[in-house]
């Protein structure tokens, strides 16, 4: 595999990210928390009557509640500065929540969800697009943390030169 990457020159493209390193742990964490709370807030809004359909199956309400709760808990974990292990778990749960929300949204618009055939192909919904963007951005920010391009609170750069 690595030979193939080298031969195609893709290894240089993939390792390009190593040229980027930023030192803004608080900004990184704040961005992650805002994005994740945005993901949660939209689900809570839908749960509180903002969902564009007059009626929807109970499992969807359960999913919204679970997703919002998990996102809020993950956000709390991400700022638990004294417990770096918990911070790591917070980011991971945040990414899982974001990925799940993206997958569910895409599934509802493509294959369809049980009891919700009317959502298939309904892309004309700004809040839904916005929710997808928030989730995708959260995963993006987390990837930058995992690759070392960014550091998240409470970690700091130990640059000496």
């Amino acid at each position: 595999m690595s030979t193939l990457l080298r031969w195609t020159g893709l290894d240089k493209l993939i390792s390009f990210y190593r040229y980027f390193a930023f030192n803004g742990p608080r900004v990184t964490t704040a961005s992650g928390v805002v994005l994740l709370l945005g993901v949660a807030a939209i689900r809570l809004y839908w749960l509180a009557g903002g969902f564009p359909l007059p009626a929807y199956p109970a499992y969807l309400a359960g999913y919204f509640a679970l997703l919002a709760a998990a996102a809020v808990l993950a956000s709390v974990g991400m700022v638990a500065g004294r417990r770096p292990g918990l911070v790591w778990v917070g980011w991971m749960v945040g990414s899982l929540v974001s990925a799940a929300s993206l997958a569910m949204y895409l599934a509802s618009r493509t294959g369809g969800l049980p009891g919700l055939p009317q959502l298939v192909g309904w892309w004309d919904y700004p809040l839904g697009t916005f929710a997808m963007a928030l989730a995708a951005l959260f995963v993006g920010v987390h990837v930058t943390v995992l690759t070392g391009m960014n550091v998240a609170y409470p970690h700091r750069r130990q640059w000496h030169d």
Binding site: Y19, A21, N23, W159, H160, D161
Partner: peptide, 27 residues
């Protein structure tokens, strides 16, 4: 000041037991 940068767009790191200069840091 070395180490206070908010962004570095380089893979180079310098050894600090010998005087390095900014020509060494050039990418």
């Amino acid at each position: 000041k070395p180490g206070t940068e908010w962004a570095r767009l380089t893979r180079k790191t310098m050894l600090t037991d010998k005087l390095y200069d900014t020509l060494d840091e050039e990418e």
